[in-house]
Design a protein around this nucleic acid. Structure first.
Length: 416
RNA sequence: CGGGGUGUAGUAUACCGGUAGUACGCACGAUUCGGGUUCGUGUAGACCGGGUUCGAUUCCCGGCACCCCGACCA
């Protein structure tokens, strides 16, 4: 799209009440807007990034058999009362309100209860299992203290997948597949090198749950990384006993990290109180064995900014960047250059390349500074100089390396 | 939820118990045109309520909002 038509402008300074790097850069670049503490709007640039992250997650969830649906944010207390989680003493992060017609509702902070209740209608036989429904859905948590920009907010998008299996063996196989899918996701969004599958506290049905922790100073968690096995242990369960049990030796490095995702064995914690059973091939009723698998796309977005930005701005990995290329026209009033830039913009669009075209009437320095702040992976510059040579200057945001590419070769260059 | 801090144009800031200043932005004009050019003109502001005072943006009290540390995080 044309930058002159972009909804937002960049700004030189961040609001003084934002200290987190992710929030500062995302606000300065025009990706997000703070509505109130712990609540952010996603503006066109930011929404594109968020949607790209969602797309990557969706593809990987579909690849392991996920089926996408969308559950309501407003929650009926019934199911929650059956599991004991409507009680404020059990869950202190509820947003609740009253219906004018009478009765109470809550804004969902997770969806085990309503989905498990819903599954009672869908599952009756072992032939209906396993099932892997998931959604991208807004969660509400009345956090006592929102913090660190997009890292911990009161309203946020979550990908939550729930596995419904016949028994533990079937569950374990899917749990492992989900774990592998998660690792693919981190790699695709540019966090692969810094994200570790991390052992964390489990529940009644498994000794451990697993978190996916990205090493980052802005993180809230402390993990101990075993480089040899590319695996980590959360501080909360980092004991000699656990180290021994996992056979990971004694060679660990401590690091601050952000929990970008987690997977959890739920067992029959929810299926039993809500009566989710199936008829097995021996004619007996059995409780469904469950697991949950969460990722917060906005937190992933914030983590990418924290981990990959430099002193000039954000550096988006290709798969999540709001645009593939940033076409910058340095016209200096030269109409030939402007016309060529217009032509190139149309050409790239015709070839399906997502491009942000800086057609604004501002000086080169401002355009370059903005391009670096916004962080689109590839910058294309058209100026009198490049026009006379019949091509464009192509530079990579991540390395700063620039090359010259001819007019005729540019589409192919970008498609690679 | 405990502790600490901050509220001044759209943004970042300054001074002051007595006319609220600067920079960026924005508007207009000129200048310039591959690294936030230069100059002129203009635009726009004291979180809310109460108290003290002749007079409060400034001091005091309360509220609200926001930030940080800690706790919490099925």
């Amino acid at each position: 799209m044309r930058q002159s038509q972009l909804f937002t402008k960049t700004r030189k300074s961040a609001p003084k009440d934002e200290v987190a790097k992710n929030a500062q850069l995302l606000i300065r670049g025009g990706f997000i807007h703070k509505e109130m503490a712990g609540v952010y709007d996603f503006l066109p640039l930011g929404y594109r990034v968020l949607e790209n992250i969602v797309r990557v997650i969706r593809e990987e969830m579909n690849a392991i058999g996920g089926v996408e649906l969308n559950l309501s944010a407003l929650q009926n207390p019934d199911a929650w009362q059956k599991t004991g989680r409507w009680d404020e003493k059990a869950v202190d992060s509820w947003f609740k309100t009253n219906l004018r017609a009478g009765g109470e509702v809550g804004l969902g902070f997770t969806h085990e209860e309503p989905l498990t209740a819903l599954m009672c209608e869908q599952i009756s036989s072992y032939k209906d299992l396993p099932s892997y429904p998931y959604q991208f859905q807004t969660k509400f948590r009345n956090e006592e203290r929102a913090k660190s920009g997009l890292m911990r907010t009161r309203e946020f998008l979550m990908k939550d997948l729930y596995s419904f299996s016949k028994e533990e063996t079937e569950h374990a196989a899917f749990y492992e597949k989900a774990s592998e899918a998660y690792m693919k996701i981190w790699k695709r969004v540019g966090l692969g090198d810094k994200t570790f599958k991390t052992f964390a506290s489990g529940g009644s049905f498994s000794k451990f749950s697993h978190e996916f922790q990205t090493v980052c100073d802005a993180g809230e968690d402390t993990i101990y990384i075993n480089q040899e096995h590319k695996i980590a242990i959360n501080k909360e369960v980092f004991t000699d006993e656990v180290k021994k049990e996992l056979g990971l030796g004694n060679d660990f490095t401590e690091a601050k990290a952000v929990e970008v995702g987690n997977i959890f064995t739920l067992g029959t914690r929810f299926s039993e109180p809500l009566g989710l059973t199936y008829k097995d091939d021996d004619g007996k009723d059995k409780s469904v064995f469950m697991g949950s698998y969460g990722i917060g796309p906005a937190r992933v977005m914030a983590t990418i900014v924290e981990v990959l930005s430099d002193n000039k701005g954000i550096v988006w990995p290709k798969e999540v960047a709001p645009f593939a290329a940033h076409l910058v026209a340095i016209t200096g009033g030269n109409q030939d250059v402007a016309a060529e830039a217009d032509r190139m913009y149309e050409l790239l669009r015709e070839h399906g390349i997502e491009v942000l075209y800086d057609d604004r009437d501002v000086r080169a320095g401002e355009k370059f500074a903005d391009a670096e702040l916004i962080g689109i992976p590839t910058r294309l510059v058209i100026s009198e100089k490049t026009l006379s040579q019949g091509g464009l200057e192509v530079s990579e945001r991540s390395s700063g390396n620039a090359t010259f590419v001819s007019d005729s070769g540019i589409v192919e260059h970008l498609k690679n």
